[in-house]
Design a binder for these strands. Structure first.
Lengths: 191, 191, 191, 191
DNA sequence: TATGAATGAGTATTCATTCAT
DNA sequence: TATGAATGAATACTCATTCAT
């Protein structure tokens, strides 16, 4: 049930269609057609459209997390780690515009509320990388002593807006500008 | 423009329903019912659902602009003006959660792209307050010499995320924290 | 109630709109607008849309009848009278394309059935011109001895089709061709 | 083209309802109900109401053409062929009153204009039976030398009117009268 | 008589989901 | 598991008609 080809085809088709046309512009029938399966087949793998959407989000978040963890400079200082984290997310967004647009939609929909909560307040279970980074940064008095959600907003608020405008083609960011943006973000959270 | 009560009732009903349930979760019939008018009556005032939505957005933007302009310290220094601008927007959002949620939806919808462009790249016509502020700040070497869209992202990216979380009830911001946030945002754009 | 200007304006507006767009493409509100009156005003003169339509038909039929009667060669022989009648109707249609198109719509709609009956079977009361002409023609053994409806179909069937195609711009009839057509029609009914 | 039963049921239901009540008097929901299918099912077979209507017309025209071609006396003289053609059409109309009424509606609607043009001016591609008949008749100097549209009007104008009145029950045509009518029509076009 | 704002029943069409195969 | 035909509730919008002024 986990690694069938059809399942992946459906996820991919749904991802692309929703990215481009939104949740309401991506009928199940169209997703099925694009995935090359029957309309009913989707329901063999997902209980409902909602569940399909939630699963896509889960997968994308996982991918971003993996990207962050890969080559994460655990041993470097706070700033370097922060920079790596921001840049990785930024680059992931602009090199995966389809993923970005899906996540943006998801984020700004009823589905998104729960996601939000987790990220903002901090997961109950194992703390995520960002959480740890902020905690250490505060301890080392390198970054401002503020609640986690504040650092989150200061770091990712600008990145999301810039990525969005880039992905929509409204602006054209080069590597210099991306670094400049992250430097500015660092100025916001550093002590 | 006609100041009939029904027109306002319709606008208010639509605003509230869309804020809470999104564009697709706010059928015209429900809007009509909530506004206490017949289903057809909406079309006496607005040509289509789209036009109704666009008009709501127009009104809300106007209100925010007015709030910013009111008591805007034109003669004070850059930082003070920046602070006033950010704080006013911030406060408007959290004291008008319904307006905020509507604007968020609008912003992240096909409607929003054009709005975006204007804001980000700078209006062709008369420059807006934020545009002027940034330009002067750069001239006076008080804020970083970066494109307008960068300052926009750095300033409003965090504010929007914080406002959203506050409005959704995920966090509870007090006045101290709001000032703290804006101070941090200032650190991001200041030279 | 009979000769108000507004009444005529409404009739004219309705005639033109229905001619061009059909019964269903001519909303009462549009008729009112075109007539330069309020939407409700129409109902001061006509009980319903149906009644308005029926009245237009009545007026147009009256006009055609008047056109036929004018200069009708009561003293000339059957053929000449027949020719005059056909030609007058034909010319009326192609010089009043709006009237023609209205009548065609009316004819081919539920309204038209009653009209039909009268024309075809012969009016109960005073016989109309065509009826008298056919009756005399049969008595004089100049035209075929057939029921009235047969002569009606043979005479006006072709005329209506030709007029329609001319009015729609599919063909372009000149005077010679019109005379040719009526001659042929005469061949059909003459003995 | 798929020969599902439902498709045929829908076509039949639509044909009957439109025949009786016109395009606007036959809502899709009523068609569905009469066909014994769900409202959405119609859209599995036809993209829109328009397409459904056009398809019905296509089928009916095909049927009439088949009726004409069947037993068409290709080797007999012009008059006999003309008579066969007219009589077949005539009989088809009065034995298929529902088809006739549908076609009449179709003919006198926006859909019908293109059909008209083809019939009247003559098809660009392969000439139809009527076209060939007229051409030969003119060559053999048996029928009048006139444009095709004239013969069309002279032949079918009367037939359509007679069929209509018969179908509406306003007159009652017997075989003798039908032959009489076609004889008269022949008199109109013969030399 | 004249108005036009207001109505709400009615329409074509969409789409998530089901189920017999 | 896989299908896709079938469903019917839901939606934006239209328009003849009414009625308070």
């Amino acid at each position: 049930m986990k690694n069938s080809n059809k399942r992946d085809d459906i996820l991919q088709a749904a991802l692309e269609l929703i990215s481009e046309h939104g949740f309401h512009g991506a009928p199940m029938s169209t997703i099925a057609e694009k995935a090359g399966v029957g309309a009913g087949t989707i329901y063999c793998y997902f209980k409902s459209k909602d569940e399909l959407i939630i699963e896509i989000n889960r997968i994308l978040e996982e991918k971003i997390l993996l990207a962050i963890e890969k080559n994460y400079p655990f041993n470097k200082d706070i700033k370097e780690r922060f920079f790596h984290l921001c840049k990785t997310v930024f680059m992931y967004f602009i090199t995966h515009p389809i993923h970005f647009r899906f996540l943006e939609q998801y984020f700004h929909s009823p589905y998104g509320v729960s996601v939000h909560k987790e990220r903002i307040v901090g997961t109950a279970g194992e703390p995520n990388i960002f959480q740890k980074l902020v905690k250490q940064g505060i301890e080392q008095k390198v970054i401002k002593d503020m609640p986690l959600f504040m650092h989150f907003a200061l770091a990712f608020g600008p990145i999301i807006i810039l990525a969005r405008n880039h992905v929509l083609g409204l602006i054209k960011l080069d590597n210099v500008q991306i670094n400049q943006a992250i430097e500015a973000v660092w100025d916001a959270i550093k002590k």
